[in-house]
Nucleic acid binder design. Structure first.
Lengths: 391, 391
DNA sequence: TCTACTTATGGAACAAGGGTGCGTAATGCC
DNA sequence: GGCATTACGCACCCTTGTTCCATAAGTAGA
């Protein structure tokens, strides 16, 4: 709007506005009638007709067969948004995995993929694994690389505004990698990179536990606990991309989260890294403690409660700073109905000023990749609905 | 824009867009020529002419005398934004004062006012003092109450989204007051109420130390230390209006800020409240310690440093949570070149992950009232430039 | 099978807004 | 006093969108 109100406009901007409105209504799904569409958008039928033929020329809309037999009168022409006119791709690159989701322009996920990567892989090897995974995914569903409109990737650590890994303690050889540029070489479309907790927040708001919440915080409890925040409906990154890192204050207890649980097992007895490279020894140990707590092992349960009490201070600091509507707790250490989330639900509110809902993630390990997908889809939407330049 | 893209538009919305764009260009100040204006907005001269005559009908624009003698050719008609077509009012209501600023539609401050209120005044008395102060201010400059387009007020404590004082430890008898409704009775225009630190943040961004910074935090060091945050260029209030209250965590050391300094003087020797009711005994004592530190008193200086070290944790928590571009420190306890700000500048960065500028407020005691004014002016701007309804 | 009714279509006539171009008015300079 | 210069005011045309109406293409009932 600001762009719009700065420079005045020809009648053509009116057409662009109406095209965007029509596209938006059409993308809601279904195969509306011309008249239905006109009524919904608030335009006359002839105008809508003109807009639609223009959108058809751009390849974004097709006419579908009219449905006869339903109702009285002459069957109406029906139109459909061509969701397959383009695709968006979301990546999750972490210490042990590469995860991918591909969606069409409707945001419908059409394919997913997963590949294990060794913890101690070099940055080059990790990027090669990404390249292979992407190629496999695209080949499986038969989507051309040129059909991608936007790509986004999430990764642990602090990601600078230019998409460089400014800080990363979790993935070896990862710090300093200009990830956006490296990935940019693989795709003929814009590539965005962001912190994993930030993207998990986007995902939870999109199709997870925080649907339609405009002010929420997502806690990603993994080896290190990161947080992402949606503020006023928009992802907040901070000046240097480091927002949500309250864990740095030692007294707020968000560092080495998994290690607190793992300490139960004497370090000498920790198993070596799994052969599939899917999780490190600390994560494995932590997950065993969580499982034991779930089974009713009282020593393990106490350890979980202690972890929750430790984490509560950091989470409360974030809640006090932002006063969010809700906090979603996710990451490797969390499953729905978990003892950890229950413990946090007891430990955090007493430290807060306002009632804040605490929910477990419903997306599990897919959260980050889905969030990356959502970020890419946001870019797609911006492209679809932009009105400040000729199509 | 979203509003715009949802419902399609007549040619009339085009006119509204162009009117808004022209008004925006015109309000930049000066008395531009018709052609200059047309060039700047990107419209043709006849169109601009039509828009201007419409704006003149609405009383927002006047033609001024052409300036002959300057340059060749026929003198051009010149136009001016009628800043006096309306006014905005900002209030600061705190424990000891009522402060007011009145501005025209250009945001130019045309009058200010200040009145002392006794600390132990009842809510009713405090509101009466506000009413009197407003009447005096308006009478002084000869502005009708009906000429007010928007009013905003700042006050210590947590202000709920509906404008109720949900929590306030600083002003007696203030908690629970439905301030927005009470003030609403005094004015025939919208009235907004917000937390004082939030408004101070707005003010510092508008004409203080944080000009044009879209991500900043304002620390208001008074009896209790509050914080306000601008995120992505917009004020962040939180779901319940309680954002920025990290001070609640005891280990973050933002509670009873002034008292830390005042403790130097044994409580028995504290002077009684000043006859003018302008400051409480604790504030007075705190200010004496600050002044002593400024003069070089080493004991006082050490006390200030200790306070800074205490506050640093809370400020760092906020900085880590939000990763702002800069932090502005203001409030009663701060003057430019102060030892407190210097001490914070040393104490905070080591706790942070990213380089964050720390600056002293340049607005002094006016910050909150100016921020309230800015909030009211934002509402004025929204009204001036709205395009989603007929004028 | 034919007729009446219903609903959508397609195009013509009309209105609003914006751009272009040209004759004309008002000023400064020589 | 004439000329160059600059801006004005108006007429004309294009784009976009709306209203209105005759017509087409179905269904339901006789």
């Amino acid at each position: 709007m600001s762009e719009l109100s700065l420079h005045g406009g020809d009648p053509s901007v009116l057409r662009r506005i109406n095209a965007a409105a029509t596209l938006r209504a059409l993308r809601g799904g279904g195969e509306p009638t011309l008249s239905e569409l006109a009524r919904e958008v608030g335009l006359s039928r002839p105008t809508t007709e003109g807009v639609l033929s223009e959108l058809a020329d751009r390849g974004l809309v097709t006419e579908v067969a009219p449905r006869s037999g339903r109702g009285l009168g002459r069957p109406a022409r029906r139109y459909r948004f061509r969701a397959d006119a383009g695709y968006a791709l979301g990546l999750d690159i972490d210490a042990h995995h590469v995860r991918l989701f591909l969606a069409d322009l409707d945001g419908e996920v059409v394919a997913g993929h997963h590949a294990a990567v060794a913890l101690n892989a070099s940055a080059t090897e990790r990027l090669a694994a990404v390249r292979v995974a992407v190629s496999e995914l695209l080949a499986t569903v038969g989507v051309e690389r040129g059909a991608l409109w936007a790509v986004a990737a999430g990764t642990p650590g602090v990601v600078s505004p230019e998409g460089r890994i400014a800080l990363c303690t979790v993935v070896p050889d990862w710090e300093g990698v200009a990830l956006a540029r490296e990935l940019g070489r693989m795709f003929p479309c814009p590539v965005l990179v962001d912190n994993d907790a930030n993207l998990a927040a986007l995902a939870e708001r999109w199709r997870g536990a925080a649907r339609d919440s405009d002010d929420m915080v997502c806690v990603l409890a993994g080896p290190h606990t990161g947080m992402g925040a949606i503020i006023g409906g928009r992802l907040h990154r901070g000046r240097w991309g480091a927002a949500g890192e309250v864990g740095l204050l030692p007294e707020l207890g968000l560092r080495d989260t998994a290690a607190v649980l793992a300490e139960a097992a004497p370090s000498g007895t920790l198993p070596a890294e799994d052969s599939d490279g899917t999780a490190g020894p600390v994560e494995r140990a932590a997950e065993r403690v969580l499982a034991a707590a779930q089974r009713g092992d009282s020593a393990a349960a106490e350890l979980v409660d202690r972890l929750a009490a430790r984490m509560a201070r950091g989470i409360a600091a974030m809640a006090l700073a932002l006063d969010p509507e809700m906090i979603v707790v996710g990451g490797r250490l969390v499953r729905p109905g978990d003892r950890l989330v229950e413990a946090l639900r007891r430990a955090v509110p007493p430290l807060c000023l306002t009632p804040v809902r605490i929910e477990a993630s419903t997306l599990g390990e897919d959260a980050v990749a889905l969030g990356a997908l959502r970020l890419a889809l946001d870019l797609v939407d911006e492209e679809l609905f932009r009105i400040d330049r000729p199509a």
